[in-house]
Design a protein around this nucleic acid. Structure first.
Length: 268
DNA sequence: ACATTAACGCCTC
DNA sequence: GAGGCGTTAATGT
């Protein structure tokens, strides 16, 4: 009976456009093709790639060769970047916008958000593994510009020792993050999980304000629930509890952390 | 301690 | 106006 929810989640996400507009998003309309880029002009593939840590140690020539296999695509808010059904054999680079990487339970359609992705991050790495059964998907939380590389091309890149080393680090750190959250889900209770989530988000998506550290995301309570493996109702109750204790405040779906210390206390 | 269900008004699309 | 969202309360595990 609840089985619709998971599917509906795909449609729900955000509604605050105007906040996002004045920050980013003026690029993306004209995109020079990688081939003859001499200068790293703003908005070119080369210019985009420079922002990815994983290419930090790449020299210009190497980077230029990457631009030749990199495809760009714009994704509208709430549209999927890839679906669980697809045998996604691509590696994605998030250039602009924000996205969520989630896993849908086949039985009841419930969603668990694995990662929130911000510009400069890679995703779709699971297609590197042999088993492609994975029921993960990526959805744009805002208008996104993504780059992607076909698996075959990507495989060739991994022959570069420096690159594959960086890749290993990245996969490793994701692994650690997942393990930590696994332990959270098993051994911590909702207020603790939610407190941790808020602290994490305020670090990952910071927006300094007079009132304190704000989280630069417009997550719905349903999203937060999907992030910590709880229900929307419990998230609502717990958030109000936090507000009553003066730990946080929220206006227009943006949460502001007022009392970091006590929130940290809760997160132990 | 938390999920589930149902019911409500509000807000968005 | 429909459906998504936030909220509350009752009830179940």
């Amino acid at each position: 009976m609840d089985s619709f929810i998971g599917i509906l989640i795909l449609h729900e996400i955000f509604q605050l456009d105007w906040l996002l507009f004045f920050t980013e998003i003026e690029c993306g309309s004209e995109i020079p093709l990688g081939n003859n880029v001499q200068t790293t002009e703003k908005g070119s593939k080369l210019w985009h790639l420079r922002k990815f840590n994983i290419f930090e140690k790449f020299d210009r020539d190497d980077l230029e060769s990457v631009t030749k296999i990199l495809h760009l695509k714009e994704i509208k808010k709430r549209d999927p970047i890839y679906l669980p059904s697809e045998n996604h054999s691509r590696i994605f680079f998030l250039i602009k916008g924000k996205a969520k990487l989630s896993r849908i339970d086949a039985k009841d359609g419930k969603e668990l958000i694995l990662f929130l992705i911000k510009p400069g991050e890679l995703f779709g790495l699971l297609s590197l593994s042999e088993e492609r059964y994975s029921n993960t998907m990526a959805v744009a939380l805002q208008r996104c510009l993504v780059g992607y590389i076909e698996f075959a091309d990507f495989q060739r890149m991994t022959k570069n020792a420096v690159f594959s080393m960086e890749l290993n680090k990245l996969v490793g750190s994701r692994m650690v993050r997942i393990e930590n959250r696994l332990d959270e889900l098993l051994f911590r209770e909702v207020p603790c999980r939610l407190a941790r989530l808020l602290l994490r988000l305020s670090k990952e998506f910071p927006k300094k304000m007079k009132c304190g550290d704000k989280i630069d995301l417009n997550l719905t309570q349903q999203d937060m629930a999907n992030l910590i493996g709880a229900t929307r109702e419990i998230v609502s109750l717990t958030l109000n509890d936090f507000k009553r204790q003066g730990l946080i405040a929220s206006h227009r779906r943006q949460i502001c952390i007022h009392d970091k210390k006590n929130l940290q206390e809760l997160s132990r």
